[in-house]
Simulated assay, not measured.
Amino acid sequence: MKFCSNCGSDLIEWVIPEGDNHFRYYCKNCETIHYQNPKIVVGCIPQWEGKILLCRRAIEPRKGFWNLPGGYMENGETLPEGAAREAFEETNAKVKIGKLISIYTIPQINQVMLHFLAELESDKFSVTTESEELQLFNLDEIPWEDLAFHSNDFALKAYLESIQQLNYEVRMGTLVK
């Protein structure tokens, strides 16, 4: 950080503020502490007649790999609203968001990924600027080796485990490197 987003000053220090235990950017001019917190990413597992809709990414990172629809939350929206919006942005499909199925923490990049179960409202979907191909997969056809992100792998395995155990509790995981 070079300038304070509160007052515009360049009197920024990287310090542990009094009473805190993390380094933070601190503006000596207006005495604002700038907190930086993890980004929340929301997505869903869209289903239609027992199949899962996956998107082949048309954008980086991981262009060309299969992905569950998802992305960063926007200010002013709920978790389910964000997941439904991301599904629409990547598939042109409307979904009904259901239960939360997984929470996946990626501390190295300051992200928390939440995946919900979702039902497609119809079998109408199409590619967008974010997805170059869409396909409904049977559960035994999921292209595991070609999934874009660890969070996708974790969410889909959580879903399969939920089906097998008839237990739809939220599964939590962390990418460890």
Score class of each variant (00 low, 15 high):
168 Y>D: 02
151 S>Q: 09
57 R>V: 12
102 S>Q: 00
74 E>W: 09
93 A>V: 08
92 N>V: 08
94 K>P: 01
121 E>R: 11
136 L>W: 01
136 L>N: 00
119 E>G: 04
114 L>H: 08
84 A>N: 01
100 L>P: 10
36 Q>E: 14
95 V>W: 03
157 K>I: 06
110 N>F: 11
67 N>M: 15
133 E>Q: 13
107 P>C: 04
34 H>R: 05
63 K>P: 09
74 E>M: 14
119 E>W: 06
166 L>A: 12
77 E>G: 08
37 N>V: 14
93 A>P: 05
10 D>T: 07
77 E>M: 13
169 E>N: 15
109 I>F: 11
99 K>T: 12
172 M>G: 11
34 H>T: 03
137 F>I: 01
156 L>Y: 07
37 N>Y: 12
25 Y>V: 04
103 I>M: 06
153 D>N: 14
149 F>A: 13
143 P>M: 06
145 E>R: 15
62 R>F: 14
174 T>L: 02
71 G>T: 04
101 I>Q: 01
116 F>V: 00
33 I>A: 07
13 E>F: 11
57 R>C: 10
120 L>Q: 02
94 K>A: 10
101 I>V: 14
31 E>Y: 11
68 L>R: 08
66 W>Q: 06
45 I>V: 08
114 L>T: 08
137 F>L: 03
68 L>Q: 03
6 N>R: 14
104 Y>M: 08
15 V>I: 15
121 E>D: 03
53 L>N: 00
146 D>N: 15
85 R>N: 05
12 I>F: 00
156 L>G: 06
17 P>V: 09
119 E>S: 13
169 E>K: 15
124 K>T: 10
17 P>I: 04
162 S>V: 09
21 N>R: 15
161 E>I: 07
36 Q>P: 00
51 K>A: 00
